[in-house]
C-alpha cells in the first residue's frame, strides 16, 4: 500500500448534527490530492476530523497504517500530520518567529532552530520580518507563515484548507508554486480548494464533495482531457460560479 492516508466511511459534525456522511478517500504517499467543493460542502469538517480537531461519530481514519480515529490534535501533530486551517489561524499578537516556534512546540529547541532556517529559505517573503507581529503581515505573507508554521513539526502529511482564500491571483499563484516545491520534497499534501482552475494545474487527483458527501474522483490527466471544465464542475458540484480562470 502506498496510501499515506485512508479515510473510511467517516460520519462527523458538530453538536450532534451530521455535516459529512460516509466519506471515504485515500491520499497516496507523495501525492498532492485535491478536495474540491462549494462552501458548506463539508470540506473543512473532513479536514478537522483528519487533524484531530473534530471527533468523528463513526468511521475510521488511518495514517501510515495506524488507526488515528479520534486521536487529539497534539498526537497527530507528533505523528506527522499538520493542518493549515482556513483563515490561517495566526497567533496574531505573536511575532513571525514566535508563530514558527509555536508550530514546532512538539519538537526540540534545536530542531526548531534548524527548521526555521528551512522555512525562511522556502519563504523569503517572511524571512525579513521575523520580529514583526503576525497581524502586521499582508494576507499572502500570513498564508506563507501559516504553511511555514505547519512545516515546523516536520510533517509527512500537510492538510491545507483553502490557502487561496482572500488572496490576489498573483499571490495565489506564488503560494501554489511553493506547494509544488514542497511536494517535490516528498511531502504528501491534501489540499481543499474552491478554486478549480489553479488546483487542476498542480493536483495529481481530485475528489469532489457536495452536501457532505464525496460525489466523485478524477485523475488530473482525466480532468485536463475531459473537455470543458464547466461540464465537470456542474456534474460534480452543481455550480460553475467557483471556477474563474485566473490566467
Amino acid at each position: 500500500m502506498t496510501d499515506q492516508l485512508l479515510v473510511e466511511e467517516i460520519v462527523a459534525g458538530y453538536d450532534g448534527k451530521v455535516a459529512i456522511e460516509d466519506v471515504t478517500l485515500t491520499v497516496a504517499r507523495g501525492s498532492l490530492t485535491a478536495l474540491l467543493g462549494a462552501n458548506g460542502a463539508g470540506k473543512t469538517t473532513l479536514m478537522k476530523s483528519i487533524a484531530g480537531l473534530v471527533v468523528p461519530f463513526s468511521g475510521r481514519i488511518r495514517f501510515d497504517g495506524t488507526d488515528v480515529t479520534g486521536k487529539d490534535a497534539r498526537r497527530l501533530v507528533e505523528m506527522g500530520v499538520s493542518y493549515v486551517p482556513e483563515g490561517r489561524a495566526m497567533a496574531r499578537a505573536l511575532s513571525v518567529r514566535e508563530n514558527l516556534v509555536l508550530g514546532g512546540m512538539t519538537r526540540s529547541k534545536q530542531d526548531n532552530r534548524e527548521q526555521i532556517e528551512v522555512v525562511m529559505s522556502l519563504f523569503p517573503e517572511i524571512a525579513g520580518r521575523q520580529h514583526s507581529p503576525a497581524w502586521q503581515l499582508s494576507g499572502g505573507q500570513q498564508q506563507m507563515l501559516a504553511i511555514g508554521r505547519a512545516l515546523m513539526s516536520r510533517p509527512r502529511l500537510l492538510l491545507l484548507d483553502e490557502p487561496s482564500l482572500g488572496l490576489a491571483p498573483l499571490l495565489v499563484k506564488r503560494v501554489f508554486e511553493r506547494l509544488e516545491e514542497l511536494r517535490r520534497t516528498g511531502l504528501t499534501i491534501l489540499l481543499v480548494e474552491q478554486n478549480y482552475w489553479i488546483t487542476m494545474k498542480i493536483a495529481d487527483c481530485a475528489y469532489f464533495m457536495r452536501n457532505g458527501r464525496i460525489v466523485g474522483r478524477k485523475e488530473a490527466a482525466e480532468m485536463r482531457s475531459a473537455g470543458s471544465p464547466e461540464e465537470i464542475l456542474s456534474a460534480y458540484l452543481g455550480s460553475t460560479t467557483q471556477g474563474t480562470n485566473p490566467s
Binding site: 501533530v77 507528533e78 493542518y83 489561524a89 495566526m90 497567533a91 496574531r92 508563530n99 512538539t106 513539526s153
Partner: peptide
Amino acid sequence: DPFAARVCG
C-alpha cells in the same frame, strides 16, 4: 488565539 495553539498541537 487558542485555536491556533490547538492546531499547532
